[in-house]
Computed example of a mutant assay.
Amino acid sequence: MSEKKYRVIQWATGTVGSAALKHFIHNPVIDLVGVYVTNPEKVGKDAGDIVDLPKTGVLATDDIEKIMVMEADAVLFAPFQNPDNLGHICRLLASGKNVISPAGPFLPNKWLPDETKRIEEACAEGNSSFHGCGVHPGYSGDILPITLLRLCDRIDSIEVSEVIDKVRNPMIYTEMAGFGLDPEALLANPRRSPETYKHFYSSLDMLAKALGKEIEEVTVKFEVATALKDIKHLFGEIKKGTVGGQHYEWTAWCEGAPLIVYHFYWQLGDSAEDIDPLWEEGESCYRVRIKGDPGLEVRLMGDKAEDGRNPFHGLPWTGLAGATAVQAVCDAKPGVVSHIDLGLIQPKGLVRR
């Protein structure tokens, strides 16, 4: 039986976009037809060369208008945050292309009415679908815990934690995130706004609704850890006595009690000799803890690497969570489609001997 093929454009080829691009090149049910890049050094390169794979015959372009008129079923939209992103998404949708976006916005979301309205109008114009997705939000904080609910008789609360050692898993925006600053200064002016939880609200709300509940309010907590020594990382060094760790906590309350808690533990190092306090020991992971009867815990991390440790694949997972949803979004009804609308996604083309 022949499998339906989907014509796909990859928009942006950073770490997230490159993971998706590799998938599209390998997947036999995907026909890669276009690649949009912003790096001048990538313009004109074959898509395969960008990700160290054999040539595909598809050349990267930085011409947005060329992408807009290209015939395609879907666009995997994965640029850095940019004020122009929403406009580009709406143009793509209005041109008849379905959009799967790890860059957000993550819908449906009551806190994003203007974005929702513009995207819905563009979907109606192009008879297309939009799906915001990623690993968090988009997987570890919604799909993963929802699938675990069937193993429980009673749920008291659910905690989802993102635990990342930023030395072993470096990020280019370490200093931008506030590491290396005076702890009191960062506490007074967090680099991640207290309103950030609103961009994750679709996941919180989806999980609450899966339990038949409505969120009454979300409370926010922020604390920092101090570096106990100078700590080098891939992109620089932070000094002893400055911010070496950050913990964000968002709690969704239902019926007067905390029901869902999202934790973000970002640490430079994984030892009590590195920072104080060290909130989380062990390797980077996504973790779901369900308190109830029976309680359970699941950790999501990469398989063992050559050094014997488990790598953290947060950014590649973000790209793949979107790439493997392309087929389902293309086949979905027009408009904004959530994980609930898509049902249990069954991606084709993953088994390749």
Results as ranks from 00 to 15, higher is better:
residue 198 K to G: 05
residue 171 M to F: 00
residue 17 G to I: 13
residue 59 L to E: 10
residue 322 G to E: 10
residue 299 R to K: 12
residue 128 S to E: 07
residue 6 Y to L: 04
residue 73 D to K: 11
residue 85 N to L: 07
residue 44 G to T: 02
residue 212 G to V: 01
residue 29 V to C: 13
residue 117 K to A: 12
residue 232 K to S: 10
residue 352 R to M: 12
residue 134 G to D: 06
residue 69 V to T: 14
residue 195 E to I: 11
residue 150 R to T: 12
residue 173 Y to W: 13
residue 268 L to T: 09
residue 282 G to K: 08
residue 293 D to F: 15
residue 71 E to P: 10
residue 309 R to E: 12
residue 22 K to V: 06
residue 245 G to A: 14
residue 35 V to I: 04
residue 63 D to K: 03
residue 101 S to T: 07
residue 60 A to K: 01
residue 89 I to P: 12
residue 179 F to H: 08
residue 140 S to H: 04
residue 120 E to P: 09
residue 310 N to F: 15
residue 65 E to P: 00
residue 239 K to M: 08
residue 207 L to F: 12
residue 328 A to D: 08
residue 183 P to W: 05
residue 276 D to V: 13
residue 210 A to F: 14
residue 169 N to Q: 02
residue 208 A to K: 00
residue 55 K to G: 15
residue 218 V to L: 02
residue 116 T to H: 08
residue 148 L to K: 02
residue 182 D to E: 13
residue 263 H to P: 00
residue 19 A to N: 02
residue 349 G to V: 13
residue 267 Q to K: 01
residue 109 N to E: 11
residue 3 E to A: 15
residue 27 N to Y: 09
residue 301 M to P: 06
residue 66 K to Y: 13
residue 135 V to A: 00
residue 19 A to D: 00
residue 56 T to M: 01
residue 134 G to K: 09
residue 332 A to H: 10
residue 334 P to H: 09
residue 279 W to V: 13
residue 313 H to P: 13
residue 294 P to T: 03
residue 110 K to V: 14
residue 162 E to M: 07
residue 252 A to M: 04
residue 151 L to I: 13
residue 33 V to M: 06
residue 296 L to S: 05
residue 252 A to G: 09
residue 147 T to H: 01
residue 251 T to P: 00
residue 266 W to Q: 10
residue 350 L to G: 05
residue 295 G to N: 11
residue 215 I to G: 02
residue 254 C to K: 04
residue 262 Y to S: 06
residue 310 N to T: 15
residue 109 N to P: 10
residue 243 V to Y: 10
residue 308 G to I: 02
residue 111 W to I: 07
residue 190 P to Y: 05
residue 66 K to H: 11
residue 102 P to T: 13
residue 23 H to L: 10
residue 122 A to V: 12
residue 348 K to P: 08
residue 340 I to E: 11
residue 145 P to K: 00
residue 94 A to I: 06
residue 289 R to H: 11
residue 132 G to P: 07
residue 69 V to G: 14
residue 284 S to N: 05
residue 298 V to H: 03
residue 319 G to E: 07
residue 119 I to M: 01
residue 268 L to A: 03
residue 29 V to H: 15
residue 36 Y to P: 12
residue 347 P to C: 07
residue 45 K to T: 07
residue 274 D to L: 05
residue 252 A to F: 00
residue 339 H to Q: 01
residue 25 I to P: 06
residue 68 M to H: 02
residue 215 I to H: 03
residue 27 N to T: 06
residue 154 R to I: 14
residue 35 V to P: 02
residue 111 W to L: 06
residue 122 A to E: 03
residue 72 A to S: 10
residue 16 V to E: 12
residue 143 I to S: 02
residue 28 P to F: 00
residue 128 S to I: 12
residue 107 L to V: 13
residue 312 F to V: 01
residue 298 V to S: 06
